[in-house]
C-alpha cells in the first residue's frame, strides 16, 4: 500500500488516507435519488472512522440500491450478487475471513420480497455485517412496482393503491436477533452519519433501514415514501452522539436524560432519551416505540435497539482468530496418523 504525502490542505484521516480511496465510480442512478445521499454518508463514515478500504468488502443484491456499492469505497472488493441473496454471500465471506469489515446494501424489494428468507436468517445469526436497506417502498430498477414495505393506502403514480400491510424490517430484525437496529432518512445527514459510524464500532448484524425516496417512481403526492411525506412524518427518537474510541471527548448529559452505550471497539454512544422509560437496549420498549409511532402515522428514526455484547456468528462458531481462508496446509489437513486411524477403524 502506498501512502503518498498529502498535498497541503488536503484532509487525511487517522490512518493517513485521503478521501479518494473511499470514493467510488460515478453514480448512474437518477439525480436526486436517495441512494446517492446514502453512498455519500457511507464514504464520510468510513473515512472519518479511518477504516482501511482494503479490509472492507461491499456486497449487494440486485436493484438500483444494490448498484450503489460501485459508487463508494473504490479501494474495496465488491460483490454485486443475485436478487435477494446477498445475506448468504456476506455470511460465507465473513466465515472465510472474519477480520474483514462487511457492508451490504439492499433494497426494500431485494430484502422484503425475494430476499426475506435470507434476511431473516442473517438477523438470526447475528453475522457481523452492516446491512443497509435503501427503502423507497417500490422497485426502482423494474420501474416502480410496489414493494413489501409500501404503506397501506400509498398510491402509485398510475393510481394503483397498495392494499397490503407493510413489513416493518426494523421490528423484524429486533425480533429475530439483530444486535444493532436503526432507521434513518437519506435526507438526515447528521443522524445517518452517526448511525453508520456507530455501526462501524459494533460487532454483529447492524440492520439500518434508510428511507430513501425514489424520485422517478415514488416521490409524488399520495406516496408515503416521498421526500415531502418523510420530512413531515419522521420522528427522531432522540439525539445521537457518537464518540469514536480514538477521540477523547467528554459528553455531558444531565443525569437520566441519556443512555450511554459502550461499543465493541471501545467507542461510546450517547443516546438522548425521548421519554423517561425509553431504553434502546430493551427489545420490548424498542418494538413498542416503533409500533406506537406507526399507529400515529409517523415513523421513528434513530438508534432503535442495541445489544453491544451479544456474540456474533463467528464467535458462536468458535472460529480460530486467523482468517479461515488463508490457514496454511498443515492446519487444515490432518496428519497421516489420522487417516491411518480412520482406515483401521473401517477394516
Amino acid at each position: 500500500m502506498s501512502i503518498t504525502t498529502p498535498e497541503p490542505g488536503k484532509k487525511i484521516n487517522r490512518i493517513g488516507l485521503e478521501v479518494q480511496p473511499y470514493r467510488g465510480g460515478k453514480t448512474t442512478l437518477c439525480a436526486g435519488c436517495g441512494h446517492n445521499a446514502i453512498s455519500e454518508r457511507i464514504i464520510d463514515a468510513f473515512f472519518e472512522m479511518g477504516v482501511d478500504p482494503k479490509r472492507v468488502i461491499k456486497l449487494s443484491g440486485i436493484g438500483c440500491s444494490s448498484k450503489s456499492p460501485a459508487y463508494f469505497l473504490g479501494g474495496a472488493h465488491g460483490f454485486n450478487s443475485v436478487h435477494g441473496r446477498m445475506p448468504s454471500v456476506a455470511t460465507g465471506a465473513m466465515l472465510a475471513n472474519k477480520q474483514l469489515v462487511a457492508i451490504g446494501v439492499s433494497g426494500d424489494g431485494d430484502t422484503g420480497a425475494i430476499g426475506i428468507g435470507q434476511f431473516v436468517h442473517l438477523m438470526r445469526r447475528n453475522v457481523p455485517v452492516i446491512y443497509i436497506i435503501e427503502d423507497n417502498g417500490c422497485y426502482g430498477l423494474t420501474k416502480g412496482q410496489f414493494s413489501p414495505t409500501a404503506d397501506l393506502g400509498s398510491v402509485l403514480k398510475n393510481g394503483v393503491v397498495n392494499d397490503l400491510p407493510p413489513i416493518d424490517t426494523c421490528s423484524l430484525a429486533i425480533e429475530l436477533g439483530a444486535s444493532f437496529v436503526a432507521r434513518s432518512f437519506s435526507g438526515d445527514k447528521k443522524q445517518l452519519l452517526s448511525i453508520l459510524k456507530a455501526a462501524l464500532s459494533h460487532r454483529g448484524t447492524c440492520m439500518i433501514d434508510v428511507i430513501s425516496p425514489c424520485v422517478t417512481f415514488n416521490d409524488h403526492e399520495g406516496s408515503t415514501k416521498s421526500y415531502a411525506y418523510v420530512k413531515d412524518h419522521e420522528e427522531p427518537v432522540g439525539d445521537i452522539s457518537f464518540v469514536p474510541f480514538f477521540e477523547d471527548i467528554s459528553i455531558d448529559y444531565e443525569p437520566g436524560t441519556a443512555t450511554e452505550v459502550r461499543m465493541h471497539d471501545g467507542s461510546r454512544l450517547f443516546l438522548k432519551k425521548v421519554a423517561a422509560d425509553y431504553d434502546p437496549t430493551d427489545k420490548s420498549t424498542a418494538l413498542k416505540l416503533i409500533r406506537d409511532s406507526g399507529l400515529r402515522g409517523e415513523f421513528a428514526t434513530g438508534m432503535l435497539y442495541i445489544e453491544p455484547a451479544k456474540h456474533d456468528f463467528t464467535t458462536l462458531l468458535n472460529l480460530v482468530d486467523e482468517p479461515l481462508a488463508t490457514l496454511p496446509l498443515e492446519r487444515v489437513r490432518p496428519g497421516r496418523d489420522v487417516l491411518d486411524a480412520i482406515m483401521e477403524s473401517l477394516k
Partner: peptide
Amino acid sequence: IVQAEDEIAAVGMVLGAGWAGA
C-alpha cells in the same frame, strides 16, 4: 459449518466464502 436455511443460501455462502478465498 452452517446448516443453511435452504439450498440457495447454502450455495450463496459457498460463493461468498470462495470469493473471499476459502
